[in-house]
Design a protein around this nucleic acid. Structure first.
Lengths: 133, 133
DNA sequence: GTCCCTGCAAACGGTTTGCACCCGG
DNA sequence: CCGGGTGCAAACCGTTTGCAGGGAC
């Protein structure tokens, strides 16, 4: 796979902003450095990078797919307030760590999806609560 | 919230088929009993049921949203072969069970997303492997 | 010259919205 | 009546596709 300017910007954005951007956000970033870049190219590159195993889609609800350049095994935290998705360092699940089957199913991988309020939003909400008192 | 025929069919389908249907699949089911039913109504009802806390969206990748009428806490298994999503009985994560924060984050809930091959697909793949020998 | 990559525009599919109508209270 | 629920059609938005160039090797 060649490293074209557009492809580079896509990858760079994902690595620099571990906030798991949507395709649109990446398109905006690419567009800032190269206003002629197109959405199709962003999608092409995201798929190319996914096939190469450098990027993956995130399993979180929401209309727009989010992408992740973190290849290391890790969990995800979803802020229910702002929608941001953050990486959480890996920890094993004792129930699954040494296990390759579950009922008749073959287990290949697993991850945790944790939901709550991110640090920024927590602080904001706390501020607002103070104001009300 | 009133229990209209259409709303009933939506809820019934989700409860009877714990395979986490997409909106389209639910629409097909509703349509079978009432050919005049519209997609808009299915979406209306899915949202109404979600607001009422009887149904929720699933955190799995894929273009079409999947819905779940299982309110009990549980994990999810995603078949990488056929895309089916199955419920897995709840088990705690020792890392998270008694914890309400994670870094500066407030944790409200968590769940496991397990990926692999479902029972049906495993058997099929095994069959095919046998044939090749 | 070949092949991969790009940009554009149109198509696509899932979801949402606006609106008129209907039915139950 | 009023308000929520319905059906239809159009709009919307994220994504995909077809296709004609262009640049790297």
């Amino acid at each position: 796979m060649r490293c074209t300017p557009q492809r580079f910007v896509v990858m760079e954005h994902l690595m620099r902003h571990p906030v798991h951007a949507t395709a649109e956000e990446i398109y905006q970033a690419v567009n800032r450095t190269d206003p002629r870049a197109s959405r199709a190219t962003v999608y092409n590159n995201l798929h190319a990078l996914m096939k190469a195993g450098l990027v993956r889609e995130l399993p979180v609800e929401g209309n727009a797919t989010r992408f992740d350049a973190n290849v290391k095994r890790h969990h995800h935290f979803v802020c229910e307030n702002c929608g941001r998705v953050e990486d959480i360092d890996w920890f094993d699940s004792p129930h699954l760590a040494r296990r390759s089957t579950l009922g008749g199913r073959v287990v290949r991988d697993y991850e945790m999806v944790i939901r709550g309020t991110c640090e920024t939003c927590s602080q904001q909400l706390e501020e607002e609560a103070k104001c009300l008192n």
